[in-house]
Write a protein that binds this DNA or RNA. Sequence first.
RNA 1: GGAGAGGUGGCUGAGUGGCUUAAAGCGGCGGAUUGCUAAUCCGUUGUACGGGGUCAACCCGUACCGGGGGUUCGAAUCCCCCCUUCUCCGCCA
Length: 431
Amino acid sequence: MLDIKVIREREQDVRRALEQRGMGVQLDELLALDQRRRDLLSEVERFKCERNASSREIGQKKKSGADASAEQQAVREMGDRIKALDEQVREVQSELHEKMLQVPNIPHVSVPVGEDASENRYPRSWGEPRAFDFEPVPHWVLGDKLGLFDFERATRMTGAGFPLLRGQAARLQRALIQFMLDVHTREHGYEEILPPFLCNQEAMTGTGQLPKMAEDMYYVGLDNLYLIPTAEVPVTNIYREEIIQQPLPIALTAYTPCFRREAGAAGRETRGLNRVHQFDKVEMVKFVVPETSYDELEKLLHDAEDILQRLELPYRICELCTGDLSFAAAKCYDIELWAPGQRVWLEVSSCSCFEDFQARRAGIRYRDAQGKVRYVHTLNGSGVALPRLMVAILENGQQPDGSVKLPEVLRPYMQGCDRLTVPPTLAMKEN
RNA sequence: GGAGAGGUGGCUGAGUGGCUUAAAGCGGCGGAUUGCUAAUCCGUUGUACGGGGUCAACCCGUACCGGGGGUUCGAAUCCCCCCUUCUCCGCCA
């Protein structure tokens, strides 16, 4: 959420910044509501001041035994007016609040201006795509050979887009989670969190999923809870409505499943594990003082990159332009892995700085050196998402015989196993 | 799911209708003093919103004692509903 005072005082700047996002925002309406709210507040507070004074007088009079029934009558009538005005204030306030929740964050000055993804920048990349002396195949072909996935049966029990991993794939996924958490906790200084996988409406509003993304989430109506689309939600909301007492920055990492309805995405790049409704992810979340947030964003990005470098997977960094930036972000880098079997780049991480946008919604504050209460800056990034990481490992590590050579660094996590091979049961079927 | 007991500031903890502007202590911040890794003494101490202002380190007002309603001239205090924590019982991986 933006600060209404900032909108009031720097209307033109805000207007320009939001236009760069390609979103029409009704600032006039917001400012009119704000004016109305302030007028009403002035009025009702004047009455309340008067009532407080009169009540004190009545108390004095009664104590000294005098009659105060005339005054009581007057104050009672004033009370009716106050009640009516309070009601109006509440209405205007909640309407303003609803509207404010719909306004996206202002992009940071360093964000390239552009209309859509075609104007994103690619400042750098890491690693050389492997040169194949045979034709690399997509991961779903490898999956068939190695018995990794069972999409058909998963569809029967749940529906399309809910992957079922078997045998070596399930174990590899578990190994990857363990590996990433170990690197983040032991070497990057994050505290490991295992949060709830369902959150309430307040938490979802705090990080910005609600109200705009409601139809992208799974909702459990009976209990009024949402399945988390990312660990960002429960982990960022750890400090909701708090003044954080411990020193900043705070760096947290969490493994969770993620649930996304992906409304409107049906049929697009949905083959295999490319885009699914349920997936696992290791997430990083930071709470920092405002002065350091963009340095922290670079560090966060490097922490995610470090995972991919250790896994020896070539990637490129994408700097999102204003038109492609998500609702709550002020700046965002994506990391894209090369998938040689499909000849596409797949997004495995999104590292964002939200400045005080989420903190303001969620009421997350700290005390600065002078003891003043201020909003923290929040950041988060995937470190990283599992399905597409799995895709890249499979497609990059594939051998002519259909087996998959695993990154060296995973060996301790795979009981020394260094490749995925055709299981005996499947091999027999082929012969 | 049932019964009982709780929820007060950064923390501990008083407070059963108006001198509560939330006591006291701890912690924090500022100062004084002291030859020793500290003690002692003094002062200070919340948040949000609105208004004013030499637009700041200030002043005025309003609200805030888990959340929401109600009673009252006046509510931390009385009443109702909800949330939540703890204990016991039931159910259960």
